[in-house]
Design a protein around this nucleic acid. Sequence first.
RNA 1: GCCGUCGUAGCUCAGCCUGGUAGAGCGCGUGCUUGGUAAGCACGAGGUCGCGGGACCGAAUCCCGUCGGCGGCUCCA
Length: 668
Amino acid sequence: MDSKQLFNIHKGKQFQDAVPEKSGHSIVAARFLNKLYDLSDVAPDNGEVEFIQINSPEGEKILLHSTAHLLANAIVKLYPNALPNTSNESEDTFYYDFNMKPVSIEDFPLIEEKMQELVQANIPITRKILPKNEIIKEFSHNKYKLDKINENVPDGENSSIYIQGNYKEFCRGPHVPSTGYIGAFKLLSISSTNYEGDVNKDKMIRIYGTAFPDKKQLKAFLLRREEAIKRDHRKIGQEMDLFTFDNERAPGMPFYAPNGAIIRNELINYMKELNEKSGWEEVWTAHAFKDIIWKQSGHYYKYKDDMFLFTLPNGDNYGLKPMNCPGHIAIFQRSVYSYRDMPVKYSEAGTVYRYEKSGEMGGLTRPRGFTIDDGHGFVREDQIFDETISLLKIIPSIFKTILGTEEITYDLSVMDKQHPENYLMSYECSSCGEKFMLRAAAQEYKCPACGSEQLNSDFSMWDNATENLRKALEELKLKYTEYPGEAAFYGPKIDVHIKDALGRLWQLSTIQIDFFMPANFDLYYIDKNDTKVRPVIIHRAIYGSYERFIAILLEHFNGKLPLWLTPLQAYIIPVSEAYNEYATEINKKMREKGIRSKVDISDGTISKKIKLIRTMRPSYILVVGEKELANNTLSVRNRKDKTREYGMDEFMGIMAEEIREKKIDQAF
RNA sequence: GCCGUCGUAGCUCAGCCUGGUAGAGCGCGUGCUUGGUAAGCACGAGGUCGCGGGACCGAAUCCCGUCGGCGGCUCCA
């Protein structure tokens, strides 16, 4: 059935009455005049109704939501002191937060059994409209629900509760008609959280689960999830001998083995090429600075607990750099610049160190030491737009070239104007006319010159920067979503997020406009009137960090990287000892040409050698024997397990082209 | 940091619930096989069962503490 098919319904009739016969459990809700309804609801007017199918995206959300309620119903029956808080649905999963003692996943079968009982009973899920005061009575035992009711229902008005047997829930719906609609579900994991995400508020436990119309879809989901876990970059990294972590001597700090260093260096070299083409100059900065620079930059006051700080025997206080910008600023400060010199753009593969908490660290996606392709452009305000345009052309080309991603979407994070005090911005004193910058949430709200508190906010710098970013995205017709409140305190920003194998979003590229550092470090250039003018800093990272980018690469390709990146480009196997010499000679020739190849002259069958080298994910496996020796050819096997015979020079030419063009797909 | 979960041979994992004997595959070593594309055959070595403490005649197994990995929360320049 076409889910967009419409059916006539008359005012006062239940939507259920208009459902086509023999729909079974495939229809779970109705959309009428752009609003979703339970099937048991009555139509408020004559018109056409669209039915929501359980397998549609909206149907899946409704199913997950109803299963979350089913879980809550089971929980309060099994653990009478548990207080449900709220639930949430994402793609394929839901969670529900409870105030209760933690349970073990060993208790999941018991909970699932109770849920299954409720499904088997096919309990109707009904909606009841009540006045606010009666809803409050219903939930008087649960302060979390009372909060939600008071937040969402104006005094004197009505709202809805849902009833599942004797379990009641404050909810707007819609829901599946009865528990029998829930074909298959499974509890996935548990963790702790706090009420309203605030660590100072009540502890909650969060139970995750999933639900599907039938067991087949549930099984497929669990399989996908299992396969995704196998594509973990840490697992691939171990198999390919790329990197390791030494948690005794340097927790959270990756160590690159030769193979991993190859990938990293290829990415660094590619970034250097791009920098040269787009006017970014390579620089290098120290790793440890006296704490005065961190105090001047503001990192010390905001991130002191997350920095590696230490004191020398002579009493000097130092910190390892958590960011590269102060170092680049120090380079900028070594000279005086004319407006004609702008923009001045520095880039560095700069390693930074952050004391991430133990639960926050995670492989290469979030280590304690990582290297950013960190660029800082010192620009005139009128140059923000062009520089942003330039960067927004580089970013997608990188994703297309390396990952083959045709289109990426951007997050534009802007100021929350309801709370300007959270941001560094300009003010003008009403009393003396002084202009200055201030972050009201962290500094005294007064004029630094005369002490007056009558200050006028000046949003123009923020508005100008935000508008430049927005215009740049629109000029290039890039897809973006705006996020009020997500800006950095010092300026608006554009981010690119990419999913890892588990579907988690990680920030890679970023472009950030910074008014704060130029002010803090008193940076300036000289304009045509011989006047000092404050520049703006554009922070930019294209990969984000090498570590995180490598992690995404490994999971994206399951380790089978494009030829230019792959550590083992060719693996040579002789069919018997008699051809060891020939194979060794081929290896020599290839290495002389810069191809990363190896020869396997160990004992063992061809089949065994091919099978075992798979975990290294070589691009090509070359088998040579009598035939190849006679014809000066190679028997080439690619990653799709196809084999083809090539002349030696011909194939080395093919590889050279594949490397030079940074091709993602193989030659055949 | 908080909740859950896990830690056993070089690697991947059984064994733990219900205490008594430490196992499998791969890898590694030796011998044989000398071969044509997803692991040839035989034999062998290899273990502080993360660490510390405890109840017990006795602990890989039960209890407590602790270190670390993973998932989630929190935080993210």
